[in-house]
Design a protein around this nucleic acid. Structure first.
Length: 419
DNA sequence: TCTGGGGTCCTAGGACCC
DNA sequence: TCTGGGGTCCTAGGACCC
């Protein structure tokens, strides 16, 4: 058996933990740059506020219904997530952290008769220790556990747990779930399956293997098996090293000058470099890209990207910044208003196995020590304590974040005060 | 009068996830 | 004025090799 535990309206719930006066009030959390709604409390969902709606279209509604609006505060959500995951890990032998607000739990060695009770205990504990409400779905495979979780939300609101404990409960859940509700079935396959006459998951599991293989590839076939109760998706207990690492942002205001864009790009490059070091990888190439604003049809458009080879592979911030700037200078064109730029580290290799170049004059050992020291300082004293001069301090490009909450749990200056 | 077969690697594009 | 960001996996087709 597998359990899928997920945090209800996670970002909104995090904001509410530290602002309990918001209980009962609609809460919305906006994406980066305060662009669109990405998390909604139950009250906000009831108002009909859809996931992904641009914030500017919601302004009147926010005012009318006294919605509490927040910019996204990933530092806070990340820390709250760690706390939830640590608690869950105390209950079962294995936990796979699937996303910031979800985890698969290995229930195979747990006392079978009590799984529902176990689910409720976990849920209560997480709620009590972190303030975050969760929902638990328990079933024979990961895909069914996902479905059980959704089913719990729809039909077991009171206890917040659903266990597909026997064939008739599984069938009940499959019949309730539309094909579009299945984890792994997106808009394209939904359309296709509906046209073929499949409406619910219960319909879909009757489809012949060959037909599914032909029309939906091995991914679809795996899914089919999972829905029939045969596990086909492996545990992924520690995340494999990433194959690409990207950082990109929209600018708070459109930018046109190379110097400003360069400053932004250097900051993004520094973030990527740090992520590379954290997973002990080095990059053999970089992609740098730059875009104008696609929705501003009144302005000239220009989108460009370039791949820059790196030799030898590196994860040193100053070295990577040199390559990124080189790429930017090639693709940059004056006279445009740019909305976004970014950098992707590609062809990642383990940092210990970097092929040395004969002509390399850099002292790699020393450079690594400098980066280690920088990462340690930034970890203990806050990010960006030590930075490259080119990263600048102006941040003219910076994101809009007009409704940011304090970092209650990670910054002493911003800790909650109780009077 | 006529042009094999089998394999690998790379890339672009599609689909999906949170 | 105004629409996020960061990933994965799979497949088909082309280039190339022997």
């Amino acid at each position: 058996m597998y359990a899928l535990v997920d945090c209800n309206n996670f970002y909104c719930s995090c904001e509410r933990v530290f602002a309990p006066q918001l209980e009962g009030r609609p809460v919305v959390v906006l994406s980066n740059n305060d662009g669109c709604a990405i998390a909604r409390s139950e009250e906000a969902k009831a108002l009909g506020i859809q996931m992904g709606t641009p914030a500017y279209l919601l302004e009147a509604e926010f005012k009318q219904y006294n919605v509490a609006v927040f910019s996204s505060n990933y530092t806070l959500y990340g820390d709250m997530s760690d706390r939830v995951m640590k608690l869950l890990a105390g209950f079962v032998p294995q936990v796979e952290i699937y996303s910031i607000d979800e985890a698969f739990l290995d229930m195979h060695d747990m006392p079978f008769a009590n799984l529902l009770e176990l689910g409720m205990t976990m849920r209560n504990t997480v709620r009590q220790h972190t303030g975050i409400p969760t929902t638990v779905g328990i079933a024979a495979t990961k895909t069914l556990a996902k479905m059980a979780n959704r089913y719990a939300k729809k039909t077991r609101r009171d206890i917040g747990v659903f266990w597909a404990a026997n064939a008739s409960l599984v069938q009940e859940m499959l019949q309730f779930s539309e094909v579009s509700d299945i984890w792994g079935i997106g808009p394209q396959h939904t359309l296709f399956l509906r046209r073929q006459g499949f409406r619910t998951a219960a319909d879909f599991i009757k489809a012949p293997d060959d037909w599914v293989r032909t029309n939906m590839s091995v991914v679809g076939l795996r899914l089919l098996h999972e829905l029939r109760g045969i596990p086909a998706i492996e545990w992924e207990l520690e995340p494999p090293p990433k194959q690409h690492i990207c950082t990109s942002r929209s600018f708070g205001k459109l930018q046109t000058h190379l110097a400003d864009i360069k400053e932004a790009l250097c900051n993004f490059m520094a973030v990527v470099a740090q992520k590379l070091r954290r997973q002990q990888s080095a990059a053999k190439s970089l992609q740098v890209f730059l875009k104008t604003h696609p929705h501003r049809t009144d302005l000239k458009q220009y989108n460009a990207a370039i791949v820059v080879d790196i030799n030898p592979a590196t994860n040193s911030t100053p070295e990577l910044i040199k390559y990124a700037v080189k790429g930017l200078e090639i693709i940059y064109r004056p006279g445009y208003w740019f909305k976004k730029c970014g950098v992707v580290a590609m062809e990642l290799v383990p940092e210990g196995q970097v092929q040395q170049s004969m002509f390399d004059v850099t002292d790699r050992q020393k450079s690594k020590q400098v980066m280690d020291a920088m990462d340690r300082i930034n970890k203990s004293l806050g990010k960006d304590t030590v930075r490259m001069a080119v990263q600048g301090y102006e941040k003219r490009y910076r994101l809009r974040a007009a409704h940011l909450s304090p970092c209650y749990t990670t910054n002493y200056e911003q800790i909650l005060k109780v009077n």
